[in-house]
Design a protein around this nucleic acid. Structure first.
Lengths: 224, 224
DNA sequence: AGAATGCTTCGATGAGGAACGAACTATGCG
DNA sequence: CGCATAGTTCGTTCCTCATCGAAGCATTCT
């Protein structure tokens, strides 16, 4: 019998369909209320509430009470990364994917991963930033290059030098199976993409759809 | 209700304690037989077999049949990465590691792993044997060195040159996270330790407790 | 205050699945 | 061939846990 971290406990939390749906919904990055999550999961409110307390107890969620609303969100990037990893395996071993619908295609191109961008676009972006030595990829770690601060400042992104969480993190992309950029920098970039209206979030999905002009702007700034 | 890859299915496979233990055991990279995995998981053979077919069906394992042995291994790096991710979260949110009890401490020092010795003692022993070039460590494989036969013969251990199962095998130690010696040689050594009464097995546990004199003898022979 | 909304707790029900013993199949050994 | 080892399949038992309705708190609105 082995011991160590109780991985079964965590996995079984994700292993219930209702809870898995809730977690997937929260991968969008926005905190949701119990009722919204109940709807996402397709269960009644009491059932959802029970699931949510289990997820809380398991440390996978955070809770922000605002008046009579209680907003549940993922506990952190590490949890998000775990969900992505599981999603990747599910995708890979998943039974003969029926033809991916248009929404799946959009998801593959660009989607929200917790608080940063994922998908082919995101992977390409990280590749290019590393190519240009703005970022330095070291094994599994990503660090800022010497020119990083000025580079991002020119775009209008301030890179905090002492954030609570890492500026850069590699996050494995389930659709491309290569890393994309997470961390505060990844979050800031996604924020820019959305506030500049280069892209908009698909309703009720994690997909991020670029406008033709937005794509051009994005490519000019990040893929040049 | 959401669709997409069935993450709950995958997570629930990992979510059973027995299966989680098996997968953790396989994280060492070496494929293991059903009986070994049953032991690791602390369940009976039929139960283990049932779990293994579920893991196979879920696509998390590969199977290599060799004669009447069936070696199960992780399906690939992606699966390993997922386990790592889950382990990371479990570690992070895991309840304030309670101080390991006396029996746990004993387990950490020396315990039975299927039919050979594991724990700090076993890891130290393998290190020393490799140092002295009695055994040769090649990547994940372990082979007999030129002096091995005479060396073990002197101790009273006959090394079969054509055994049914490998003479040497590396087995990852969960407490030390390094390899110890398995295979028929590992089994023979454990046998010697017990028949010489250097140590006795703790009742109803995998722990192996050395007597003061037994420890001296063991160290003289294997750690000199 | 009273009513309405958002959510949790309680209790009962039911289904899934984890467990093992016993019997069966397959491979290897003498 | 018969015996031993490795593993699977079958059938049964048992228990966990997901589910929902009803009732109970809590917060805000009027």
């Amino acid at each position: 019998m082995r011991e160590g971290p109780d991985i079964a406990r965590i996995a079984s939390l994700v292993g219930d369909p209702a809870r898995a749906n809730m977690l997937s919904a929260l991968m969008g990055g926005t905190a949701l209320t119990a009722s919204e999550l109940a709807l996402e999961a397709g269960v009644s409110l009491p059932t959802a509430s029970s699931h949510l307390s289990k997820l809380m107890e398991g440390g996978l969620l955070t809770l922000a009470s605002q008046g009579r609303h209680r907003y549940y969100g993922l506990a952190g990037p590490q949890v998000a990364g775990m969900i992505e990893a599981i999603t990747g395996v599910a995708e890979a071993v998943g039974p003969k994917r029926v033809r991916p619908g248009p929404r799946d295609a959009a998801m593959r191109v660009a989607r929200v991963c917790y608080d940063h961008l994922a998908g082919e676009q995101a992977v390409a972006m990280l590749d290019r930033l590393v190519d240009r030595k703005v970022l330095l990829r070291e094994d599994k770690e990503i660090r800022l290059g010497p020119s990083a601060a000025s580079h991002f400042a020119a775009i209008g992104i301030v890179v905090h030098d002492k954030p609570r969480r890492p500026v850069c993190r590699a996050c494995l992309d389930w659709s491309v199976r290569r890393s994309h950029l997470a961390g505060t920098l990844g979050a800031a970039i996604l924020d820019k993409i959305l506030t500049e209206k280069w892209a908009r979030r698909e309703k009720d999905s994690r997909a991020v759809v670029f406008s033709p002009m937005g794509r051009q702007a994005f490519e000019k700034v990040f893929l040049a």
